[in-house]
Design a protein around this nucleic acid. Structure first.
Lengths: 344, 344
DNA sequence: GTGACTGGTTAAAGCGCTTTAAGGTATGGC
DNA sequence: GCCATACCTTAAAGCGCTTTAACCAGTCAC
């Protein structure tokens, strides 16, 4: 006599499964989470019933009830495909450690603070911030509340964990590569102010000195966009002692450079070698084939997640800075210099 | 005598605020959500206390308790910066309608089905899927469970809402632009199989016919990457009646084309005009300056959110397909043809 | 046969919030 | 004074799940 006017539960709950198998919700919960206790026979019955009813746990309820959220909050700029790549890896690493992810994105109308607050309100146990721009003071204060890992940005403080690639080493590798090919007149197109740019510039200078090329150091004023490359090009060529190779602050600058050079009829790499930084999708374009420095994002994220897990599960309380060596990715914009010249 | 050995509540709860102002949690809840009831005086006291204690509502608890979640789930490919842009707009639009966002990303290890399940488990009331690849059958079934809007992909079914830009109109506008400049030999570099490519190809053919240029229709085999452009270039130039303009399936193909042309010494737009499709960040690069077709993502997302809201709050039950006209963005890769030739 | 286990199961107390019906207190009209 | 009226405020019942202590057979040893 039970017509189908009985409101059909839109979604089965734990209790529906429990009733179905004639057990308590406690047992069902235990089984579904794979916790110890229930016998093999019980497990089987429960799993079968759950599958049959199409049961799926409600995240909000589960989250509210459980002691630990096992949630890691990630803040990112959703418009950056680099962050997207990082996120993909973070996701995978988190999963391996039994954590789940909560995402919060920075947009025009949603700044870093709001993004972080959302994560906090979602009961995250730790935060992974991809390339945050917030002040050191604020982040340090945050870290007193829960473990915070800053990824990909040099951070002048021991108040949080930091995982990043070593920019000076990266640029150093670029110089080494060029010197190895026989280049001597290697210029650097700068990235303007900022901690990242400073590190890379220093890397260039140090490497040049290391190779006894201190007197050939040439840093061209720049920024982080293509325009810097466009403007640097004539300076590189116009000299009476033109450079045979250039290292750009990043790939975008390098692409600007490439463009200006090709317009000016300067063959790359025939007459000039060019190296970028970031290994961006741009640099991988088959017809650009930019030799560049990769930050090895996989390792970056693995360390970031490891840092979180150490503090959450490993009881670590001090802060740590992990600096990874970047890797040079040699493509087609670097080659032997046009002709050897005498040093001096 | 209350030493500070009393466990300090890590986070104030609603009750803490209530105790602070000597009211019930009910009143505090009412005030904080801006619901009607509490007097102005009460409101003020509550807000002051909440701010002083640094109270922030727990999302999980709030979500669990409330009747409606007011959550809209968005599925996207986090590695696509285009999706990132869309998301930013969706976020803004949702907010305006009083909805909150839950994000779920498709990755290597996390397919569309899992992403959607996560959204469902999070109590979303509706789903916005950015460029999903799932089958029509599955999505249609999903839509019986909750409103589903597919964004940016032609979708052969009336089982869900669809919001997309009209590809044939977009390519048509490109043809119009070129014809307006005086081009007659306008070739099209195809994007291979797939619904999107089909629509664009059709747009090209229709527009050419409309201009009485049916006999000059030339569709070059292609794909969706730079390589297609590289391969198309010689075909475009090599003929005894070379094209004066080319429209590419998308920006990546167009960039491949640009590259090959510049290597071959063909001036763009002097000797050949090129138009892409997507208005990707790539096309905006100052030194590429690709004339391209923009899908007007802002409108796309506004319609998508509107569709959701209509079904959630407006009681609409039928399905709707919104097809927006794309917009041509003229940059620097299109100009008058090199020299007029007689038609025929 | 008793006590000490032990493996399996569950009652019950939350998690922190929302929501609604019911309660209280003024106010005003009669 | 008494009742209706309006306005605030709150008690209490969840939301759907987790977790822990308690419980209940069965063993098993002695």
């Amino acid at each position: 006599m039970d017509g189908d006017d009985a409101t059909p539960r839109p979604r089965p709950r734990l209790e529906d499964v429990a009733v179905e198998v004639g057990l308590s919700t406690a047992s069902v919960s235990l089984v579904l989470r794979g916790a110890a206790g229930p016998s093999a026979a019980t497990r089987e019955r429960v799993l079968e019933a759950a599958a049959r009813l199409g049961y799926r746990p409600d995240r909000a309820a589960s989250l509210l009830a459980r002691r630990r959220s096992r949630l890691i909050g990630v803040m990112m700029d959703v418009r950056s495909s680099y962050h997207g790549e990082l996120l993909e890896d973070v996701h995978e690493a988190d999963e391996q450690h039994g954590y789940d992810l909560v995402l919060s994105t920075v947009t025009r109308t949603w700044n870093e603070q709001r993004a972080v607050e959302t994560l906090l309100d979602s009961r995250c146990e730790a935060l992974v911030l991809l390339g945050p721009e917030a002040s050191a003071a604020w982040l340090t204060a945050l870290d007193r509340q829960l473990p915070v890992v800053v990824v990909g940005r040099p951070f002048p403080s021991a108040g949080v964990d930091v995982v990043r690639a070593s920019d000076d080493v990266g640029v150093g590798a670029a110089v080494d590569h060029l010197v190895g090919l026989g280049h001597l007149d290697i210029a650097y197109v700068d990235g303007g102010p900022g901690t990242i740019a400073t590190g890379r510039r220093r890397g260039y200078r140090m490497a040049m000195r290391r190779h006894g090329l201190a007197h050939r150091i040439r840093v061209l004023r720049g920024s982080h966009t293509e325009e810097a490359g466009l403007r640097a090009a004539p300076v590189l060529m116009g000299d009476d002692a033109p450079a045979t190779a250039a290292i750009a602050f990043n790939d975008r600058v390098a692409v600007g450079l490439l463009d200006a050079l090709s317009r000016a009829g300067v063959a790359v790499p025939g007459e000039m070698s060019v190296i970028g930084y970031d290994d961006s999708p741009l640099s991988r374009l088959v017809h650009i084939g930019l030799t560049t420095v990769s930050q090895n994002s996989q390792q970056l994220t693995q360390h970031a997640v490891a840092a979180v897990v150490e503090r959450l599960d490993g009881g670590r309380t001090d802060h740590r800075e992990v600096v990874l060596p970047p890797q040079l990715v040699v493509r087609t914009t670097t080659a032997l210099p046009p002709r050897r010249r005498s040093t001096g």
